[in-house]
Amino acid sequence: MPARSDGARRALALLTLSAVCCLPARAAEEPANDPRVRAVAEQLVCYCGCSTQSVAYCSCGIAQQERAKILGELNAGKSGEAIVASWVDRYGTRILIEPPARGFNLLGWLLPSVVLMIVGLLLAFQIHRWSRTRPATATPATPGPELDPRYADRLDEELRRRGL
C-alpha cells in the first residue's frame, strides 16, 4: 500500500509546481503526452516510494518533474538509451522497472516459464502413460458404435443432467 506521507512531499510538490509553471500552459506540449517521453519513462521506476510504478504513469509530483526533464533532454538531442543509462548510473539497477535480461537476472525471467513447461511435459507424459496402462479390471470404455446413437445421446443427456 503506497504511503506518501511527509511534509517533504508537499515541499516537493511546490517545487514541481514552480518547475511546471515555467512551461507554457498548452496541452499539446505536456511532457506526459509525448510518446518519446513515455517510451523512456516507462522503463524507469519512480523513486517517490509509493509503489513500483513507472515514471510514465506514477501520479506523484516527482514523476511529473522527471518527465519534464526527460523531455528537455530528448529535445537537447540526448537519446532515450543514454537517458536510461544515466539513470542506472545514478540510482543503480533497481531504477529499471524490470531487471535487465542477463546474468543472474535471467533466472528471474526464465524460471517460471521453464518450470511450467517441464512440469507440463512431465504431466502430459504421465497422463499418457497412465491412460495406456489401464488395469484389466477397468470398466469397459464408452459404448461402441454398435449402440444405437439415439440411446447414446439419451444416456449422455441423462448423465449430464445428473452431473456425472
Binding site: 521506476v45 533497481r94 522497472i97 524490470e98 528471474g108 525471467w109
Partner: peptide, 15 residues
Amino acid sequence: TEAILGEKISVGPPF
C-alpha cells in the same frame, strides 16, 4: 537477488 548478489533490483508490472 539482494540476498545473493547484494544488488537491488525492481520487478515491476511489465514483468
